[in-house]
Design a binder for these strands. Structure first.
Lengths: 351, 351
DNA sequence: AATTTTTTGGCCAGCGGTTGCCGCGGCTGG
DNA sequence: CCAGCCGCGGCAACCGCTGGCCAAAAAATT
């Protein structure tokens, strides 16, 4: 009575093992082999080694595969080969719009090349980031680190294991995609100088942020060149809230123009200053970085040094995929340009 | 001469197979078994079947595992079991901030439960969405569909295969997480009525959007209740640009208050109206939906019917994970509340 | 026509875990 | 004192696909 003898019912699965969850498990190369009368390994080759089997059997197998609606089992494939057609992207903060464009760029490029994107966030913490990265390493072919907070050495260690591409930071020996800030900053500072500003403040981002340091360097250099005084202020977090909190320091600094590490800070700062009755840009000019979604919603709309974030994301993905599939390993640093986008939050100083 | 006899060199890998990419491949349960002197199956059980082995050997194995820095190979595990500790999230548009919070909510919940999130986007297309979903099904344990554009039937078909949770839409027989719009809409419409408005327009979203239909229903019902006239307008795309484009229709409609399918539309609409010299909210009130990032950056800040997007994301993930791990299958619809957030873009009609 | 070379397909040993089944030793109970 | 049960560990059969190796068949060469 164990076998109710289902009469014409479709193929009673012999060993009652793992039917995908409902009844019909999906087809395997063995099913195809049985149908076509060839060996499973031939099916495998037909499906993944172009040219390894004769045109005739290839056709035979492809037809059967289509018929059975076969799809490879990625796990079964990954096991012997180690290839997973998957790569990871770790961002510092998922809710930070800066990363939205990066994520989208990477996802789009991945999809085009038939790769799958796995996402994780580090919550701006170096250790969380490293943990996430380690976890991912087991399951992906490569990794993109956007604005990583961990050590250069940790990154290099990771990179020894599988291909890694870094965005928004330059790490020796690891392929990177970094916005070249100097052009945009130069434009911003010159514009400020031309508008009569003499002292500019820079609100820095996270201490571990390589990009924050670059931007500060750039601001200093540009200010020196334009004979402006530059002061550096610290922020607690690179968020709207952080921007609000830094407002009093900005006021205290006596600067008439301020560049902030990112747009979020700029927006928060502007909100707080306006709430305190300061008129932007008449009394103080504000310039952000990145040109995130929403930067043009504010009143006045935010002047900002734009980084092509979406391009960074897709370039990084492309770099990684080339590394993965391709032969040569260029592994250099890819620099993308930045540019000043003048909107309403910066301008001539009135007073 | 095939075996160069490397003397004290660290373990020459016998078969020159697949060293993780550099030299040292990662440890397997076999390595642990060798070190501890037990059978691999015992190691497997120790690591995944709590209580199946004695406390003593468990300790032994755990120590060895820590020592060797062992991590399970997810693929090897997935092969026999079918479980992958992974779930997919498909969103209509990655760049739409509405989804940011959903993504984050889901990612966070996933991480807590040691699951990995795989992300894909459908670009607002039903077919792309279905394709992506099918592809994912092979590699994930379950799927979250945020604002799906495909047929109910397609969704149900998918759901027969693996657990599926839907956000922002109600599909019979599939667990869903939907914001209950009526409360928020009621508040919005009453507030509008109280401010002297008599005719309100609703700018609809994508035709396939279930949520857009719900919102329109809600607006109609609330308007009827408050004895207001409601007209429906169509938008080309549920984006800022779409909002801009619909501005002339809004003006032509003669409505003095407008609710839009989402905040993006509201923002675009407001920008365009203001550019045309219309004063918001004095001449026209605007109310959005969702309360996305940036909704409070505008001038005036946007009044909106907030949906708890982050909560939707994490609830959906929790639902899915419960379904996956848990025993019972509740599979109902989870309703979350919405509320009106009054900011500056709505108010008393002056004229 | 005989031989060498190239195709083409079969065989089989894994990849790293999981799991059903079995057996052994110890504890309990009659 | 012995049967019976339970806890714990070993054995081995997969999961679905890949790839090295080899032999048969086909094509090219002499």
């Amino acid at each position: 009575m164990t076998e109710p003898k289902t009469p014409d019912d479709a193929a009673t699965p012999g060993p009652v093992k793992k039917p995908a969850r409902n009844g019909k498990s999906s087809a395997t190369i063995y099913d195809i082999a049985k149908v076509t009368g060839v060996n499973p390994s031939t099916v495998s080759r037909a499906l993944s080694k172009p040219g390894r089997v004769s045109a005739k059997t290839l056709k035979l197998i492809e037809d059967a595969a289509a018929e059975l609606n076969y799809q490879v089992n990625p796990f079964a494939r990954a096991l012997p080969t180690g290839r997973t057609s998957t790569f990871g992207l770790i961002v510092a903060d998922i809710t930070n719009p800066t990363f939205f464009d990066i994520i989208r760029g990477a996802e789009t490029t991945a999809a085009v090349r038939d790769y799958t994107l796995v996402l994780a966030e580090s919550a701006e913490s170096a250790v969380t980031e490293l943990t996430a990265a380690r976890r991912m390493m087991a399951t992906v072919d490569g990794l993109i680190l956007a604005s990583p907070r961990m050590d250069d050495d940790d990154i290099r260690t990771l990179a020894r294991d599988k291909p890694v591409v870094v965005i928004n930071r330059e790490v020796d020996g690891v392929p990177c995609v970094v916005p070249e800030v100097n052009k945009g900053i130069g434009e911003a500072v010159r514009s400020l100088a031309a508008n009569g500003h003499r002292k500019v403040a820079f609100v820095a981002g996270p201490a571990q942020s390589w990009m924050s340091a670059r931007r500060w360097d750039g601001v200093q250099a540009a200010c020196e060149w334009s004979r402006l005084e530059a002061v550096r202020l610290e922020s607690a977090k690179p968020t709207v809230d952080g921007g609000r909190q830094v407002a009093r320091d900005v006021l205290a600094s006596g600067a008439t123009a301020v560049l902030t590490y990112n747009d979020l800070l700029a927006i928060g700062l502007m909100q707080e200053l306006q709430a305190a009755g300061v008129v932007v840009p008449d009394q103080i000019s504000i310039v952000g970085f990145d040109d995130i979604f929403g930067a043009d919603f504010t009143t006045p709309p935010l002047t900002t040094v734009r980084s092509p974030l979406g391009a960074c994301g897709s370039s990084a993905a492309r770099l990684l995929l080339d590394l993965l599939q391709g032969t040569g390993e260029p592994a250099g640093t890819l620099r993308v340009e930045t540019e000043l986008v003048v909107r309403g939050s910066s301008g001539r100083l009135l007073s």
